[in-house]
């Protein structure tokens, strides 16, 4: 029923838009009633946002941050998936790495970041590596669960027909893991960008995190909000334009109930 889906999606958009308008309205009202440096009105934030965009500062720092986010995200996803699948499929690998996994899972992000900077210097590689290492254990845990839930019957079928390792991975194993990829990508993107800001604040000289720190020193709330909002908007777009269509495509074989 394409019509039903379309109208449901339309309704969702309208509801989301309406709630955003209400939020901005309440914000403007509160800012007008009690003017304060720490709560600038929406139009002041919009002005700050406009200035930062036209000066080219915001696009540049956004670009720096997004590059770090994608590098760390890709690194954590690919490495974490490989380790997680290996741990889920092979008992020996699981036993060897389980302790490390628990340690990494419980190590605070800040500790990893500081250690990376102290050992490898205030470099780009240390920054991205630290972020990836923070995300890595979550990917491993999710994908390990996925690999444990793989259907042994399909595995046996693949072996009976002598499918090559590549075919088994690409067409039998990975499609079963799609929901687990989607889940860790979702939570991963959200986690990674938050940690990237911390990494930038502590040891980089560009990026949103660096800018936020600078505006914090200047006590410039309008600019802080301008940067935060623009970044959230970008991540929302990534979710809607990349993650969700990918998920829909991967799931198109599931039974469509009328």
């Amino acid at each position: 029923m394409p019509m039903g889906v379309r109208s449901a999606a339309g309704r969702r958009t309208v509801t989301a838009g309406l709630s955003a308008v209400i939020l901005i309205g309440v914000w403007g009202l509160v800012a007008a009633i009690s003017p304060s440096r720490t709560l600038p009105a929406p139009w002041e934030v919009a002005t700050a946002l406009g200035d930062e965009i036209t000066s080219g500062r915001l696009p540049w720092h956004l670009f720096c941050t997004l590059s770090r986010v994608s590098a760390a995200f890709l690194l954590a996803m690919s490495l974490g998936s490989a380790i997680g699948i290996a741990m889920g499929r092979h008992r020996a690998v699981n036993e060897a790495l389980d302790l490390w996994l628990v340690v990494l899972l419980n190590l605070p992000a800040l500790v990893i970041i500081i250690m990376a900077y102290m050992w490898f210097g205030l470099t780009e590689a240390a920054a991205i590596g630290a972020v990836a290492l923070n995300k890595l254990p979550n990917v491993v845990v999710t994908l390990r669960e996925g690999a444990r839930a793989l259907d042994p019957d399909l595995d046996q079928m693949a072996r009976a027909f002598r499918l090559s390792w590549r075919k088994r991975m690409a067409h039998v194993v990975l499609p079963q893991l799609t929901p687990y990829f989607a889940a860790s990508a979702r939570s991963g993107l959200a986690l990674v960008w938050k940690i990237v800001l911390v990494v930038e604040l502590l040891g980089r000289s560009n990026g949103i995190g660096f800018q936020l720190n600078m505006f914090f020193q200047l006590f410039d709330m309008a600019s802080i909000l301008a940067y935060a909002i623009s970044f959230v908007a970008v991540m929302l777009a990534a979710e809607m334009l990349i993650l969700q269509p990918f998920e829909r495509r991967a799931n198109r074989w599931r039974v469509r109930t009328a």
Binding site: D153, L154, Q156, M157, A160, H171, P175, A250, W253, R254
Partner: peptide, 9 residues
Amino acid sequence: FQEPRLLPW
């Protein structure tokens, strides 16, 4: 096999 064991995707 006893069950069809087709890949649903």
